[in-house]
Design a protein around this nucleic acid. Sequence first.
DNA 1: AACTTTCAGATCGTACATTCTTTGTCAATC
DNA 2: GATTGACAAAGAATGTACGATCTGAAAGTT
Lengths: 232, 232
Amino acid sequence: MSTITSIRQAVPDRDDLAEDGGSSIYERLRDDIIHGRVKANERLKVAELASRMGTSTNPVREALQQLRGEGFVIMTPNRGARVRPIDEEFVRDICEIEVLIEPALTRWFVGIVTKADIEELERLQEEIEALNFGDEMKHSNLDLQFHRLMYDRHYNRHAVDLWVRHRHILWAISRGFQTSLSRQSNVLDEHRELIACIKAQDADGASRAIARHVEGSGRHIIERMRLEKRNA
Amino acid sequence: MSTITSIRQAVPDRDDLAEDGGSSIYERLRDDIIHGRVKANERLKVAELASRMGTSTNPVREALQQLRGEGFVIMTPNRGARVRPIDEEFVRDICEIEVLIEPALTRWFVGIVTKADIEELERLQEEIEALNFGDEMKHSNLDLQFHRLMYDRHYNRHAVDLWVRHRHILWAISRGFQTSLSRQSNVLDEHRELIACIKAQDADGASRAIARHVEGSGRHIIERMRLEKRNA
DNA sequence: AACTTTCAGATCGTACATTCTTTGTCAATC
DNA sequence: GATTGACAAAGAATGTACGATCTGAAAGTT
């Protein structure tokens, strides 16, 4: 049986950063599922989790219900909760959805973009290139800002929320993964091409560029997952 | 909104239904929110809901957490839950997402369709035409079967779940709405064109047809919502 | 008038009771 | 002797009750 919290307890910061609210039971469970620390389809027993987390059963139950709503666990009446598998198929699935959604968001952005927006994109891109994947956390933040600038003002909050959530999951999965050199240069190329298309008011081109970007990102994550599985 | 996905568990057994006419607490709350029986941003107090549902607070709390995971309520620590507004924007948002997803699912279906599938589609379509919107419930079921036949075998369970969920919401919203005659004839036309394209192995055409179908359906629901709001 | 105090109402956490599932044993039958 | 069936007991999920803690607002004080 996989130890759900043992890994977490080895990392002390979590409790310091946010005394109470930050590292909720929900987040711990969710992270354990996303990172595969609990096996797929493994049963999640409330009493067991409660004792591990050092709380009573109620907070655990509510966290599980939330995770159920988000689809991370599957619950059957009187039979408790099981872990939904987070595997390569899962990544492929959400990437495929993003390949459909992000181009649409990008296309809209091309229609409302201002000179200031483009300057900001270029500034972010310069920062990303200067950093050159030196700090995973910083790069992730910059990349997030880059794409958020394009999507944040979109009227379809639903779609944007979906994107945020999917991105969150993918980021959690790929945290700790090394980015291959070839993927690094592709990322930079794709961003540059994206900016160029936006500048030229080429909605179709931007749409294709972002689709390629998302697809490449998904493929890279899946490859890394395969590598890690082989080493494990 | 959220929705990673969730395998919605089957409709509760007769035991649950036996109680006060309703079903689970979760479904009752969800229905109240979707149908606007609780105002947008209205506060949902657990004690109050519990007494109204005839249970203790714990089941209500868990239902709220699940709804939170699905994005129907917004919770802030120590301050409880509030209703997420289900308005025309909401419908437009999820329809726009479906306009992106369903064509992709349909396109894939064109590639794997068999003669038997087409015959089944035609059979369902005949039934729908014979029924001619006489019974809302039956029509909804037939329409569901029609589209489910196309999507159910798709490998991207994530996308299909998203579709199921969205369809569920839209159906709950539009339950009780009258379908205008013009929309009725459009629905039939769109289905017929869809079948024709599938038969001709015209993926692009099928894709466009389903996009038009979803868009028209969304527009119709929004119009009906406006009408109802005006009458209220 | 602004600040502090107080208190009711609501959320959150703990403990316990109930109900259902699962498992293991034992006996009866083939 | 092996298989199946019933039945009982353990394990786990679900529901109930209650105490602790937090929030928001109305009172009172300077």
